[in-house]
Simulated scan of single mutants.
Amino acid sequence: MCRSIKTLRPPYTEDVTEEDVRAAALQFVRKISGFRAPAAHNAEAFDRAVESITQASEELLSSLQVRGAR
């Protein structure tokens, strides 16, 4: 779907920052909304979606248990 979104969990990457997660969320919202940058009247909804997806992604990544991880 979004080829520029990278896998953010071990063992694919070890040093994931909040900026990495937010960038992936932004790419996702851009893809599903069809807007690279929304018009002013859609900016609040766009930004809210990015923040919600960022938070959900951080929760997911912190909850995952990777087999073989120590």
Rank of each mutant, 00 (worst) to 15 (best):
E18Y: 10
A56Y: 02
R3I: 00
R22S: 08
S62G: 01
A39G: 12
D20E: 10
E18Q: 14
E14V: 15
Q55K: 14
E58A: 14
G68D: 09
G68C: 10
A25T: 05
L61D: 01
A45W: 07
E19T: 13
S57F: 05
Q55H: 14
P10T: 13
E18I: 12
V29N: 11
A23I: 00
L60V: 04
A56G: 02
T17V: 09
R9M: 04
G68P: 13
K31M: 09
A24W: 02
R3C: 01
Q27A: 15
T17M: 12
E14Q: 06
V16H: 04
A23K: 14
A39W: 08
L64C: 03
M1K: 13
G34F: 09
R30I: 00
A45H: 07
Y12H: 13
A25V: 06
I32A: 02
A49G: 01
K6T: 03
S33M: 11
N42T: 02
D15M: 05
Q65I: 12
I53C: 05
D47P: 01
G34W: 10
P11V: 14
R70P: 14
Y12P: 00
K6M: 03
R70Y: 10
L60Q: 02
P38F: 06
T13K: 04
A39Y: 12
Y12G: 08
E44W: 11
R48N: 15
F28W: 06
A37D: 09
A24L: 03
I32V: 10
V50Y: 10
L8W: 10
P11E: 14
E14Y: 13
V21I: 15
T7Y: 01
R48G: 13
A56Q: 07
R9K: 08
N42S: 08
S57K: 01
V50M: 11
S63A: 15
E19W: 04
S33F: 11
V29T: 03
A24H: 03
V66L: 12
L61F: 09
I32D: 06
A49P: 01
D20K: 07
K31E: 08
V50P: 03
A56L: 11
E58P: 00
V50I: 15
F35A: 10
A49T: 05
F35T: 02
T17G: 08
F28D: 02
A49R: 03
A56S: 06
C2I: 13
P38W: 05
S62A: 14
S33E: 13
F28P: 00
S57Q: 06
A37P: 00
I5S: 01
P10F: 08
Y12I: 03
G34M: 12
R30L: 08
A23R: 13
V21K: 07
T7L: 03
L8C: 04
R70W: 09
S4Q: 10
D47G: 08
V66S: 05
V21S: 07
A25R: 10
S62Y: 02
Q27L: 15
C2Q: 06
A39E: 14
D15A: 09
K6S: 04
S62L: 04
H41K: 13
E19S: 14
V21A: 05
E59D: 12
V66W: 08
V66Q: 10
S63D: 03
V66D: 02
S63M: 02
A39R: 14
T54N: 06
L64R: 11
K31G: 02
E19G: 07
E14I: 15
R70E: 15
S33I: 08
Q65M: 04
E19Y: 10
E19I: 09
E14T: 15
Y12C: 03
A23M: 06
I5G: 00
E19A: 15
T7C: 04
A24M: 05
